[in-house]
């Protein structure tokens, strides 16, 4: 169980598996997962707040709160909640 958000799969677990890179480490995902889902499923967070140093794991999940920005190689800064994981994608949280 991750230390931070306890995101839990409740359906659709039979999808094909993918691998991508999260801060240089291999991270698994299911096809159709957003970067937010995959990152939080593994570590329970997606970014660190600049001002309170606390971890953040998304809030609105619909592109409004701007609390899930990550950097994706070749695409620059993206909202993790609005970006679908692709095989081999490289994601940086900082």
């Amino acid at each position: 169980m991750p230390k931070y958000m306890n995101l839990t799969r409740v359906s659709g677990s039979q999808r094909p598996r993918l691998d991508f890179e999260l801060d240089g480490a291999r991270c698994g995902a299911l096809e159709g997962d957003t970067v937010l889902t995959a990152a939080v499923m593994r570590d329970g967070y997606v970014r660190r707040s600049e001002f309170d140093q606390g971890m953040r794991a998304g809030f609105c999940w619909m592109g409004a709160c701007q609390d899930c920005w990550v950097t994706i190689e070749g695409r620059g800064r993206q909202r993790a909640c609005a970006t679908v994981v692709e095989q081999g994608m490289r994601v940086k949280r900082s």
């Binding site: 931070y4 958000m5 306890n6 939080v40 329970g44 967070y45 707040s49 309170d52 606390g54 971890m55 953040r56 794991a57 998304g58 809030f59 609105c60 999940w61 619909m62 709160c65």
Partner: peptide, 10 residues
Amino acid sequence: TLPGVTTLGG
């Protein structure tokens, strides 16, 4: 602001 708090819509 804790991880694990979302909006209802989220």
